[in-house]
Design a protein around this nucleic acid. Structure first.
Lengths: 349, 349
DNA sequence: ATCACCGATGAGAACGGTCACATCTCATCC
DNA sequence: GGATGAGATGTGACCGTTCTCATCGGTGAT
């Protein structure tokens, strides 16, 4: 079947051995860098490898060693975002340097889909499972699986049997909210993310916590997607029926949409409305008037989670939770509130 | 070593067979959906599978079938962008529906790194190789590898032995440039991408082609990275020493940076300068004054390339080149040029 | 009744590595 | 000079599947 120049099948370790005039085991030793090999022998084996075009078969190796060299990543469809992507790249690099590869499976949030995604990864004999899709449904599915491998989640919810690496979303949201409060804002609205997304929940809790601390009135948050399109719609809705001077947005994309809606309505940011984003995407500084946002070190998270995974693969013991601290990046979209908010100029109808 | 409840090792096909009172081969038949199985037998096997918690070993299966079920994706570090990420998600979904998984290896552009990345993927027995990193260095490395598997590239450069699926970058850039020309612009500058990035080259060629057609003067392009930060720097440079009324930017991020620089300098867009981006990222419509840009259907590209890969896996024959057409998305950042460009208000020093 | 045939199932050999253990070759020591 | 031991290499089993081919029981044609 397999088309190929020359022989009918790929050369294996015994072909190399025959050519080098040694046993297959000696070839294996050279391949695995054993030091009990005479230099001249090693050389002739290496020559034979090159001459035959031999390439080790990882399936065979995985079969006997029970180590696939794979780390599974469970992701979601909606991850065309800066954060997950940046983490993924950092994870890949870290894994590669340790001799591992990343296998990606993404899933919609639906019940059966998550189960089968996990099943697929486990069937591949991944040595660790990293959950880049911190959604409640994913955890429900994980709980039902008796995983023989370390499971690590990229959020700060401590789960039975799963380690965590994450940026402290609760803290980040507190920083954002506190920043507005410190500026003097009293009417602060939260535009939040999908309810089944764990970090969205944490961010909302941080917002609520600071409002509680400052004894400010809580108005119902608006929950939706993580896109600029949604932010734009939310912004129009807000202008139509709310009193507020500050907004804590679930992420920068949503904040961008909000800015759009406010600009369109003539509600100047930051003169009349202050907006805080989350993530510090690379464009945040370039979008007028410069987006104040919570910066997360996604690269560090990606590196840490893989390091933790590798450690667990070796030790077999969970590595616990690692929580990184976000920082606030203050730019032009936040300022002290005016005496009256935006609605003073355009009273509610 | 491996911690586990109950037995010392994972159940295999013979354990299931013993429990069901059949031969291991019968279990294998049930697993592979053979129709030559009596219904009652199938049921008892399925029961035994459930009872033992059996999970097929993909390494063993891959060893004998020589099909790993993996598709390798060669990517670059700098891919924290909307396009590659969107394609990757679409690729993963399409592959998964066909029973394949994506293995991701990314690489810096350096010589040795690319070679080893390819080597790693081939060692994993990937059944096809998709190149999401259309850089010249990657092609050099690919040429040196005798790949026994289909190679597909996500750009429109036709290479020996590799199929292509791509959006026509040349055409896209022509659309962008032509749009400015049609509006009446005569002094149009290109802010381009990295020179070793194949699509950047094609976009520049499209720009040059249309300028030639219209017999307009070509000024030296500015080449750099694909980030808003770079766009901002490039914008400041341009304002300092060039005469122009229109800009064709290599992508939307760069365009966002340009807009920032122009806004800062008081050079109104689109009144004095028109800007066209590329990609149509989801934020493009929300950034003032709305970014005119070239829209690419990344999802379609991702789907098509995997479909082509699957077809090649089956047929063994290259599927040739597929070229999708981009479209122009006209928004607020482009308009007819004023009689004099931005420099009329702030003459060059 | 015999036999070819077919559907259902079983038995054993691959696949290409690594592991555990055996063997061989010398230099070293008493 | 033979026992000893360590380094270098070889031998065969085994990992968990699927593949090929054999077997078995029943059925319809002869």
């Amino acid at each position: 079947m397999k088309k190929q120049t020359g022989a009918g099948r790929a050369p294996n370790i015994r072909d190399v051995a025959a050519r080098a005039g040694v046993s297959h085991q000696t070839v294996s030793r050279v391949l695995n860098g054993s030091d009990r090999i005479r230099e001249s022998t090693r050389q002739s084996v290496l020559d034979a490898i090159k001459a035959t075009g031999y390439r080790p078969n990882s399936a065979a190796r995985a079969l006997v060693t029970r180590r696939s060299g794979l780390i599974g990543v469970l992701s979601t469809h909606q991850n065309a975002h800066y954060g997950p992507q940046t983490m993924q790249i950092a994870m890949e690099r870290t894994a590669r340097q340790a001799g591992y590869q990343l296998v990606l499976v993404s899933t919609s949030g639906e019940r059966g889909a998550v189960d089968s995604a996990i099943e697929r990864l486990l069937a591949l004999d991944v040595e660790a499972l990293i959950v880049l899709a911190p959604r409640t449904e994913v955890y429900r599915a994980l709980a039902g699986v008796e995983a023989r491998v370390p499971v690590l989640a990229l959020d700060s919810s401590r789960r039975e049997g799963a380690s965590n690496v994450a940026v402290d979303q609760f803290l980040g949201s507190r920083l954002a909210t506190r920043h507005l409060i410190d500026l003097g804002h009293k009417e602060i609205v939260h535009v939040g993310g999908p309810q089944d997304w764990i970090e969205a929940e944490e961010r909302m809790q941080g917002y609520l916590f600071e409002l509680g601390e400052a004894e400010l009135e809580v108005t119902p948050p608006i929950l939706g997607e993580l896109s600029a399109d949604f932010g734009y719609l939310a912004g129009r809705d807000l202008l139509r029926g709310r009193r507020f001077t500050g907004i804590v947005a679930i992420n920068d994309q949503v904040a961008i949409g909000l800015l759009h809606a406010f600009r369109e309505a003539g509600a100047d940011v930051p003169a009349r409305i202050s907006v805080v984003g989350f993530d510090d995407i690379p464009e945040a500084a370039h979008i007028p008037p410069g987006l104040t946002t919570v910066r997360q070190d996604f690269v560090a998270v990606g590196e840490r989670v893989v390091e933790a995974a590798l450690a667990e693969i070796v030790s077999g013991a969970p590595s616990g939770a690692i929580l990184l601290e976000p920082t606030l990046e203050v730019r032009g979209s936040t300022a002290p509130p005016t005496d009256a908010g935006w609605w003073a100029s355009r009273p509610l109808s």
